[in-house]
Design a binder for these strands. Structure first.
Lengths: 230, 230
DNA sequence: TGGAAAGCGATAGTATTCCTATCGCAATTG
DNA sequence: CAATTGCGATAGGAATACTATCGCTTTCCA
């Protein structure tokens, strides 16, 4: 049993809802691992079909193409993040503590969680770090945005922006700070692993406490900074 | 005539140096425009060959594949940026002014410049905004990093980090702040254009003065922030 | 309980992408 | 003027990104 979470995503993302069937759940579970292993560029429906002992045509019954599948996975992550932040900050009165918890929650996505047994959240987060910008850095952003593909990301960002506004109601850049924190988490975890000269956090630490510290330092410096900046 | 700048890039990036021949320069010039028009995913050497009235095989004599060409273009931009920041901050004594100039220089890359007549810098910057993360978010990052593909990006980041250290020698995160400013410039210009709810800067302003103001505000708040952060 | 519908494997086939290889002409170079 | 370089032309192969059809099972529900 355990916790029973049902994440409902935008219907435009899929042809058939993968959560409804055994094959659908298998597609989600194994696509996460396969993309993590070989990268999104080399990932194909044919390779996925071979791994799950199904066929290319069967996978195409669920997703129009591999890009839609990627966006589906990311939406799943974004929605799950937003849910976790909401749960973890519930009943808290101090908005500063809320922001600290939100930052920790984002970074801790790199760690294993067992929320849903056919989604390995820690592996999914590696995909978020490596592949998420490919979801919206496309010639079709505007079209896909209209279809609501990025609502969950915007909603996650909005949740964090709301906490920021709670801390400092007259702050000029709540939305920018919220999205920057989300992007920074990915960037610096990636830099620490692959391009360490672009960051000051170390890669050794399994729990990324450096990353949390960096985000907190930036966020609170900006929020508590001198009223007038030269 | 005009200014004569020669940008020398990593030899591993190309098979034949595109700066040496007419066809090579044509490949650079038109690939920038074609990638800008149709996006990197849909961009192919065949389409580029058609546009410049050449052949696929001829383009393959310059670049192993389209990914290498993209990295080449980005390296060109990163090196050019570093050069501009160095020139623009030369003989300045106040490091705070240097950082302000550096930020303006990065954001102004979106504007037309005529440094080299076969490179349209403003169009190239649109590629940087939309496609640059695809250069290093690959399964081959580590391998390509060893070959020195990202030296110019790291060098640009290092230049900015040095200014930050000049401002505040005991600052804990100079490298992280430098790369964050570079990433933020791209992200928020992109968000303003396509996902406006993720930023607070507007898209209307042609000179992105909002973006400059945002970056300056974040940078100096972090540098001037209260010594101890809760 | 029986007939319709849904789900999925199997197979076939097409257009495009991503290359590699070879040939030969024209321009450049030494 | 001989040798090299640069490049257009063509061919072709393996992989990718789909689309379509057939028919077998399982499930649904009346």
């Amino acid at each position: 049993m355990g916790v029973n979470i049902q994440i409902q995503l935008n219907e435009n993302l899929y042809i058939r809802d993968p959560q409804d069937t055994k094959l659908g759940r298998s597609i989600i579970q194994h696509s996460i691992h396969l993309i993590d292993e070989i990268g999104f560029e080399d990932f194909t429906f044919k390779k996925l079909a071979q791994r799950i002992h199904s066929t290319e045509a069967s996978i195409y019954r669920y997703f129009e193409n591999k890009h839609r599948l990627l966006v589906y996975l990311l939406c799943w992550y974004w929605e799950w993040m937003r849910y976790l932040i909401e749960v973890n900050t519930k009943n808290m009165t101090d908005p500063r503590k809320k922001l600290t918890i939100a930052i920790s929650t984002i970074v801790d996505a790199a760690l294993r969680d067992e929320a849903i047994d056919w989604v390995d959240e820690d592996v999914l987060y590696r995909i978020v770090v490596s592949e998420s910008t490919k979801a919206y850095h496309t010639k079709k952003v505007d079209e896909e945005n209209k279809k609501g593909f990025f609502l969950t990301y915007k909603s996650l960002s909005k949740t964090i922006a709301a906490i920021i506004t709670e801390i400092k109601p007259d702050f000029q850049y709540p939305k920018a700070l919220a999205s920057t924190l989300l992007e920074m988490a990915k960037d610096h975890i990636f830099f620490a692993q692959h391009l360490p000269s672009l960051t000051d956090i170390s890669n050794g630490n399994q729990e990324y406490s450096d990353a949390k510290e960096l985000l907190r330092h930036f966020a609170f410096s900006i929020l508590d900074g001198p009223a007038s900046v030269s």
